Simulated scan of single mutants.
Amino acid sequence: MEELYPATPVRADGMLDVGDGHRIYCQDAGNPDGKPVVVLHGGPGSGIAPVARRHFDPAAYRIILFDQRGSGRSTPSAGDPDPDLARNTLWHLVSDLELLRERLRIERWQLFGGSWGSTLALAYAQTHPTRVSELVLRGVFTVRRRELDWLYRGGAANLFPAEWDAFLAPLDERQREDPLEGYSELLHSADRAMRERAAIAWSVWEGATVALLPQTSFVDQYSNPSFALNFARLAVHYFRHGAWLEEGQLIRDAGRLAGIPGVLVQGRYDAVCPPITAYQLHRAWPDSTLRLTEGAGHAVSDPGILAALREATDGFR
């Protein structure tokens, strides 16, 4: 953890009404006159992590964080008894991000995101390229069918067979034919116990695969019922719709990032978001640098990841 900056307190926070009945929780930290950066959390559905503020020199950066729709302290929560997720899509999040930039009167900002956060960063940057100064992305994920099939239709099961069996356990034979659809049914069941069992099984699968070496802390975090239901519902909602992207769109449209420098930090042994995606994005985006980190998986705490991220943020400050 020595690669992180000291804990940076929140300087200001509040709720932003983004329409459609949604209000997102936002934080502002660091130097109010510093270089603006916005942190895009993963999941979707994981919410703000306080440690994320520590990737940046607080004397040089103005650090913005927010809970995406349905996540963390934003309202309504995807974990509510009967959530309406129709107005919670990737393109709603892109619009929310642009509204937040306008509200904060920021001309251009750096985007910093890992896993699902990299998806949102790419979608926003390709939609609003003139508003982006740089991108720092970790564990690149573009929601292509091959990426979803790897994690949720048996690819990663070759590396984690016992954990895959536990992931499939709540599903009946019919539902196992398409786990995303099967989990969607269970997570919106009228039976609370069934909802919670499914949410924990879904979330623990990610907790079990995220780090290069097993870490009980991840499994413990993801198995918390209040976290798991919110996390699982949003992830299934987004992934069964392909995040409302055309197949391969974010790599196909990487040319829209021309002139925007970026750093892609990728664990060599990332079992959640395998390196092929970061490599293909890098090839399609000449202004990017690929930092393939040996001895690391998907977790931000895996060896070498924090150091590579700090090198990137220090380099852009």
Rank of each mutant, 00 (worst) to 15 (best):
W205D: 00
L168T: 06
P179H: 06
P129L: 10
L120E: 03
I106L: 14
V143D: 02
D149L: 11
L148G: 08
L148R: 09
Q215C: 13
R176G: 08
H128N: 10
Q126H: 08
Y222V: 01
F218C: 08
M194V: 13
T119P: 05
T216D: 11
F218A: 10
A208Y: 01
A156Y: 00
L111F: 01
Y152I: 07
A228C: 11
L212I: 12
W205A: 00
L186G: 04
T142C: 11
F227Y: 14
P225D: 11
A198R: 05
A211P: 02
W116H: 02
L122V: 08
P225K: 10
P179E: 11
V140A: 02
T119Q: 06
P170K: 03
M194A: 14
R145Q: 15
W205K: 04
L148C: 08
L122F: 07
L187I: 09
S133D: 15
G154I: 09
R176Y: 08
E134A: 14
A157Q: 02
L186H: 03
R174D: 14
A121Q: 07
R153W: 03
S223G: 12
R105G: 12
Y183G: 03
P214F: 05
G182F: 04
V143K: 02
T130H: 14
S203C: 13
N158H: 14
L137N: 08
W202A: 02
L120D: 04
L213K: 15
S184A: 15
Q175I: 09
A190H: 15
N158E: 14
V204I: 11
S115T: 06
L111C: 08
A208M: 05
Y124T: 09
L151R: 01
A166V: 00
E177I: 05
L122R: 06
F160Y: 15
L135E: 04
R174Y: 09
S189P: 13
A211S: 14
G113W: 01
F160L: 09
S203H: 08
R105I: 11
F112L: 08
G114S: 06
G182Q: 04
D178H: 11
V210L: 12
E196A: 04
T119H: 05
L229Q: 01
E185S: 12
D165A: 14
I200A: 02
